[in-house]
């Protein structure tokens, strides 16, 4: 905010009109984002249930979380594992498809649209239910597996496998990352590849020496966005497995929801959401710090 103040004081008065133009966004931000944000911080120090007026209880929600709640650490662990599966999987898959679709051929935009479809549908209830029936003991996936002579698998029934099955649903929704990768691929100057071809570099070599380094800024952006989303995953765990079996898919988002709306512990849920926020924040800061070691900006990162 301080920096913003300096920008304004040093600027011509006419620039204030800009604020008017962005005011719908600012008001929206204040009302729908800032207010709940601060309110939840306040509630996290109270014993607010949805119905009872709240009472200030200091840090006891946080203390309870770390010392007594038997589900806090399992939920955190499940969420971290989920992020570790889902995010790299999704990014790798998105990049692969983007590279494949980055060619000039007939109907290419039709293909791109088709591959984007899962992202539009993916978050919906219907898809989660479809996913469930695809992965049942006698579902399509198992029929395929048994067709190859392998035994059928309980995708959502084996604790260690259930989390991976749920991650697959998220990996399948690779569309938005793919579109960004595609845009990034289009930005890479053709002459670099021409130079590479003249030097006799193989396709693979060119991918790792030209394409990948020039894509790292996009990769970085995708990484941050997808990780933030993955930490908050809820739909799949809620609709498909409801946290089971043996709490292996009891993601943090689901725990939050149950504590808030099923057990009527809104204050405690607010405290949990702050821990989730801090975890995401911590991850993002680390990612930003690490950026200079592995991302490559054409302009050296200055803009």
């Amino acid at each position: 905010m301080n920096k913003l103040g300096i920008v304004f004081r040093n600027s011509d008065n006419r620039q204030w009109i800009g604020l008017l133009y962005v005011s719908p966004f600012i008001i929206g931000l204040l009302v729908f984002k800032m207010y709940p944000f601060l309110a939840s911080l306040y509630y996290s120090f109270t014993d607010f249930s949805l119905l009872k007026p709240e009472k200030f209880v200091g840090l006891s929600n946080y203390i309870y979380m770390f010392t007594k709640d038997p589900l806090f650490f399992p939920a955190l662990k499940a969420t971290l594992l989920y992020v570790l599966f889902a995010v790299p999987g999704k990014l790798a898959f998105a990049l692969l498809i983007a590279v494949i679709l980055n060619v000039n051929m007939k109907f290419i935009s039709v293909y791109r649209t088709l591959y984007y479809l899962p992202s539009i549908l993916g978050g919906s209830v219907a898809i989660a239910i479809l996913w469930r029936s695809m992965f049942t003991k006698d579902g399509v996936v198992n029929q395929f597996i048994t067709g190859m002579g392998l035994p059928a698998i309980d995708w959502f029934g084996i604790p260690s496998l259930a989390l991976i099955s749920i991650s697959l649903l998220s990996i399948w929704q690779f569309g938005s990352s793919m579109v960004l990768f595609l845009a990034g691929l289009k930005q890479i100057p053709k002459d670099l590849y021409e130079a590479g071809t003249i030097d006799g570099a193989s396709k693979l070599r060119m991918f790792f020496s030209i394409t990948f380094p020039l894509l790292t800024p996009i990769l970085f952006f995708n990484l941050i966005m997808q990780t933030v989303n993955a930490f908050q995953e809820f739909t799949a765990a809620f609709l498909i497995t409801n946290g089971g079996p043996l709490n292996s898919t009891y993601l943090f988002g689901l725990k939050l929801y149950q504590d808030a709306f099923q057990f009527a512990k809104m204050g405690y849920a607010s405290a949990l959401s702050w821990i989730l926020f801090l975890s995401i924040m911590l991850f993002t800061v680390i990612a930003f710090k690490s950026q200079k070691y592995w991302t490559h900006y054409e302009d050296g990162g200055k803009f």
Binding site: K3, E54, F303
Partner: peptide, 29 residues
Amino acid sequence: LKTFGKLSTLSLVMLLAIATILSACSGSN
């Protein structure tokens, strides 16, 4: 300007993240 840009991106991403988590968590009595 660069740090400012990064900072604001960072904070915007964060805000977006938390707001979606927390928007369900407010209520009045």
